[in-house]
């Protein structure tokens, strides 16, 4: 599904953050990336989604055989990349439902599917909202304006459900969530797992992985994947800290 090779990235005019990252995620798998603050986790998610402000100095990213780095952010979205943000953005004056429909239809049309009319979309949206327990009231409100932390994250998973991506990156989706919100979000993620969809779950903590069991766990440190293992690696990190990985290396 996604093939990252020797990826070097620096901030525009700044320091190098990713220093030769290799990562390969087959279709249908869930990979978790863990790592200390400043290790390059969010940079990786932004670079994959095509955000401005980063410069790729070496390496390649292939998504289903296509050169992902040559594509604009919206083209990546059309191709099937989704990024759930750590801090979802507010758009005042634009209702969540209108925003979602605009996005869904932009993606559908780009994928050669007919745009959904208002009625068909509403039905689709209600179904997807149920999965993450978002009320119809929340759908009428302005995008993320006045949403609690948990509501914002559930709204991200709602978008994941509606946009039907093949590769979803979730950047610290668990941060700032209480236990109840965490389990709703996790249930939402699990509902969207399937053979045709891969996930990259970025997190600081083991606790999300208690709910969303990964196939593979990677440790990102100093801009590189320094260790890869099964779900048990996350437990070990939780118990022993990140320092243990480098000591052992």
């Amino acid at each position: 599904m996604i093939e990252i090779k020797n990826l070097h990235v620096r901030t525009e005019g700044g320091a190098e953050i990713l220093k030769g990252l290799d990562l390969s995620i087959p279709a249908g798998q869930v990979h978790a990336i863990m790592g200390p603050n400043g290790s390059g986790k969010s940079t990786l998610s932004y670079v994959l989604a095509g955000r401005d402000g980063y410069e790729v100095t070496a390496g390649s990213v292939l998504f289903k055989g296509q050169d992902l780095l040559a594509m604009a952010p919206e083209e990546r979205a059309h191709a099937g990349i989704f990024l759930g943000l750590q801090y979802p953005v507010e758009i005042p004056g634009v209702s969540n439902a209108y925003f979602l429909r605009t996005a869904v239809n932009a993606v559908r049309v780009a994928r050669g599917l007919p745009a959904l009319d208002a009625v068909a979309f509403m039905a689709e949206m209600r179904r997807a909202a149920k999965v993450v327990e978002l009320s119809t009231e929340m759908l009428k409100r302005d995008v993320n304006v006045g949403f609690s932390g948990g509501e914002k994250k559930r709204n991200e998973i709602l978008q994941l459900g509606l946009l039907d991506p093949e590769f979803a990156i979730l950047d610290e989706t668990d941060s700032g969530l209480d236990i109840d919100a965490l389990s709703v979000v996790a249930r939402g993620i699990n509902a969207h797992r399937g053979p045709g969809r891969s996930f990259l779950v970025i997190t600081h903590y083991q606790r999300l992985l208690d709910h969303v069991r990964p196939d593979v766990v990677h440790v990102l440190q100093g801009g590189r994947i320094v260790k890869t293992g099964g779900p048990e690696l996350a437990l070990e990190l939780e118990a022993r800290g990140y320092g243990w990985v480098t000591e052992g290396a």
Binding site: A49, G50, R51, D52, G53, A72, P73, E74, R76, A77, H78, F82, L83, L85, Y87, P88, V89, E90, I91, F99, T102, A103, V104, A106, V107, A110, Q159, L163
Partner: peptide, 14 residues
């Protein structure tokens, strides 16, 4: 930039 990127990530043109 955040708003623009957010919309584009969801498939909207700039």
């Amino acid at each position: 930039e955040d708003q623009l990127f957010y919309c584009r990530q969801r498939g909207l043109s700039e």
